[in-house]
């Protein structure tokens, strides 16, 4: 059997912030980060707060630029370097291959919870009815009460918003999924629901890279832990 394909390859990535408003102070984040994530694998970024885990995830998504190294993401027959790709190419990569579940939901105020999820599916290229079917299924599995589906999530609790956010990230079939503490504000029942969703993605060959502070969740989903402290640029 051939080994599963590498879908994400991070190679010697380095990043620091130059804070021009603070006299040009240089704030090192990470240096010389290298690791791979294969299809069907869940790699967890470990290390204490401030080690640069979230920043690293944002670099992989192209949200933060990197100063050196490359972030290669498989795009069908091609491989795209997130660190060098044009904005236009990145937009396409994010639409079809690379998804990111942030810690917070940021959306236009008026759109209903279910439509936020459906829109993510449609952007990926699924037909609307299929997107709606998946959205209903996900919101049900994540225990979001049906009477909330048609409401805009601005007034939802933190945990409810988080679950809308997770549904939005999981609704399509991106090859690479980045998860920034998706279970942070969830109770045990919903943490278990998210674990199930992650295991389902793994079985389907998605490459997952995530941050999980909850040890129990981490133990159940992680194939490997990459300790970010060894890349810490401050050290």
């Amino acid at each position: 059997m051939t080994p599963p394909a590498t879908l994400l390859n991070v190679d010697r990535v380095g990043k620091s912030f130059t804070m021009h408003l603070q006299g040009g102070a240089l704030l090192p984040v990470v240096q010389d980060v290298s690791f791979d994530v294969a299809a069907g694998e869940c790699v967890v970024l470990g290390g204490p707060s401030g080690a640069g885990k979230s920043s690293l995830l944002k670099i992989v998504y192209g949200n933060y630029r990197c100063d050196s190294g490359s972030v290669m993401v498989r795009d069908g027959e091609d491989t795209i370097d997130v660190a060098a790709a044009s904005p236009r190419r990145m937009i396409r990569l994010r639409r079809t291959r690379l998804a990111y579940v942030s810690q917070f939901l940021r959306v236009i105020p008026r759109v209903s919870a279910i439509d936020i999820v459906v829109q993510a599916a449609v952007e990926f290229g699924l037909p609307e009815d299929e997107g709606r079917r998946r959205a209903r299924d996900l919101l049900t599995r994540l225990n979001v009460p049906e009477q909330l589906w048609s409401l805009a999530p601005a007034t939802f609790s933190g945990g409810e918003q988080q679950r809308i956010n997770i549904a939005r990230g999981f609704v399509a079939d991106h090859d690479v999924l980045l998860l920034d503490e998706p279970t942070a504000s969830l109770d045990a029942v919903n943490r278990a629901a998210v674990v199930d969703l992650i295991l389902t993605k793994k079985r389907r060959g998605t490459a997952l890279l995530g941050i999980f502070h909850d040890e129990d969740v981490r133990d159940r989903v992680a194939d490997r832990v990459v300790d970010v402290t060894r890349f810490s640029a401050a050290a």
Binding site: T18, H20, L21, K58, G62, N63, Y64, P87, M90, I91
Partner: peptide, 21 residues
């Protein structure tokens, strides 16, 4: 210039950093 979220979340130029902050 760049991706909107990249320029707003990781602004490089002093002036952009000032605008965002």
């Amino acid at each position: 210039t760049g991706l909107t979220d990249q320029v707003l979340d990781d602004p490089r130029e002093p002036y952009t950093q000032l605008l965002v902050s």
